[in-house]
Each structure stands twice: as C-alpha cells, then as structure tokens.
C-alpha cells in the first residue's frame, strides 16, 4: 500500500485535529491552568474548595465566583474603590495598595478572609487583615471560634488601601518563593535536602514538586514554610 504526499496532506491534519477534537469532546483537553483551587478531600467540608489554595494570580472576580462571595463584600473588606477592575485585579495586587501601611496584606489575607467568611478550615498564621474585613467577619459569622476571634483581634489592623498603588521595584538579588517555586529551586540556592526536611518536619521524596502543592497536600502552612525556607536561603548565602 502506497501513500502519496497528496494523501498525507489530508491524513495528517485529520489525525492531528481529529485527535484534538476527540480529546476536547471527552473533556481531557486542557490548554490552560484552570483557576480552580484544590477541594477538601474528607471530613464535613469534603468537596468544598480549599481557601488555602487561592493563588496570588486569582482575581477578585475569580475568588467571588469560586467561593460565592459577593464581590462588594471583598471590595469593602479590603477597602478598595468600588470601581476597581475586579476581573483583572489579582489578590497579589493588594500588596501594592497596602505597602504604605507597613503591613503585608495580600493573597494570604484573602485566603484567611474567605475561609473565615465561609466557615471553612484554614491554618491561621500571621496574615494581617484590614479592620474593615474583621468587622465584616464579626458581623456575618457568628460561628467563629474563640481562637479565631482572638486571631482577628490581634491581626486586624486599622489600615485602608492606598489611592495610589506602589509599584514594587524588583531587586535582582531578591529571593521570592511563590506558588510555583519547586524545592529544587531552593536546593539550587544552597539549602540542603536535609535542611528542607527539617523545616518540613517530614521526608521529602521529590524535589521537582512545587512547595505550595506539597504544603497543601501535607496540611502544612505554606506561609510558615515559605518564611523558613527564605531564611534558610539567606543563611546559606
């Protein structure tokens, strides 16, 4: 059986595009990172999205849609202007608006707010919230535990978003661990495998894994681990 180039000219596109269409029809095809946090796998919250997996790249609109929180609530909680472009405003962008306050208010603050607003579990660490967010939580969530109330008292600060965001000046030497940073990156910067395991308090099998994903899987606070790893990198220099 012979195949001419004319035959090949239609056979190849048919196989290629046919394969793509088939994978789309069966729901396997995905060409983008889906903005969907992990879900709780067990317990009474099984199936619910995990607020700890809200990424800094999620927009306010994403958070509003995913967790079914009125957009206005998010805007008021973080003292933003009503006309903010919620479809493009990423939770990480909050940092620019609170730089002048002296507190780090960003994605982790959103994670905590969303978790407490929806009554979902979250590891409370040191994420700061604006007082407006605390007031909304206290008014709307009667089920807050004493520990959560104490946390809000301590980490709720009288700050408002600045009118003019401060653009971060990137320093070349700045170490930044974000949601996609892998353990190997930290190792490459001089921290040993053993030191990482000590920080994690458990065995680390694969260094090619994103730190954030590992923390979520193991129920560790990404924020805490991130801070400790950053310190370890600084020490190893």
């Amino acid at each position: 059986m012979k195949l001419t180039s004319r035959t090949m000219a239609w056979v190849l596109p048919v196989i290629l595009f046919g394969g793509i269409l088939l994978s789309q029809a069966t729901g396997v095809w995905s060409s983008d990172t889906e903005k969907k946090p992990n879900r709780f796998e067990d317990g009474i919250f099984a199936g619910e999205y995990d607020p700890a997996d809200i990424r800094g790249s999620y927009t306010l609109m994403d958070v509003s849609n995913l967790f079914e929180i009125d957009l206005q609530v998010l805007i008021q909680a973080f003292t933003l202007k009503n006309d903010i472009d919620a479809e493009n405003f990423q939770t990480n962008d909050l940092e620019k608006y609170f730089t002048d306050s002296g507190y780090e208010i960003g994605n982790e603050s959103v994670q905590v707010f969303v978790a407490l607003y929806k009554g979902l579990p979250i590891v409370l660490d040191d994420a700061v919230l604006p007082r407006a967010a605390v007031d909304i939580l206290l008014q709307n969530q009667s089920n807050l535990t004493d520990e959560q109330r104490a946390y809000l008292e301590e980490y709720g600060k009288d700050v408002v978003a600045s009118e003019n965001p401060v653009e971060e000046e990137e320093e070349e030497s700045e170490i930044k661990i974000n949601g996609t940073t892998t353990f190997q990156y930290v190792i490459d910067l001089g921290v040993t495998h053993e030191e990482i395991e000590e920080i994690l308090g458990m065995k680390l099998e694969y260094t090619n894994q994103a730190i954030k994903d590992f923390c979520l899987d193991q129920g560790l606070s990404f924020s805490t681990i991130k801070t400790k790893l950053t310190e370890a990198i600084e020490t190893s220099k």
Binding site: G19, I20, S23, V28, W29, S30, S31, D32, T33, T180, E205, Y206, N208, Q209, A210, D213
Partner: peptide
Amino acid sequence: NLATVGDYIQKIHASSVI
C-alpha cells in the same frame, strides 16, 4: 513529574501530553 507528583510542570498542560 506526572508519574512522581501527579502534576504537570509549570506552564505545561494536558494539551501538550495529548
């Protein structure tokens, strides 16, 4: 990565594997 940690590496999606 898919075999060991069950996830795609950064920037890569199911479309590449398909």
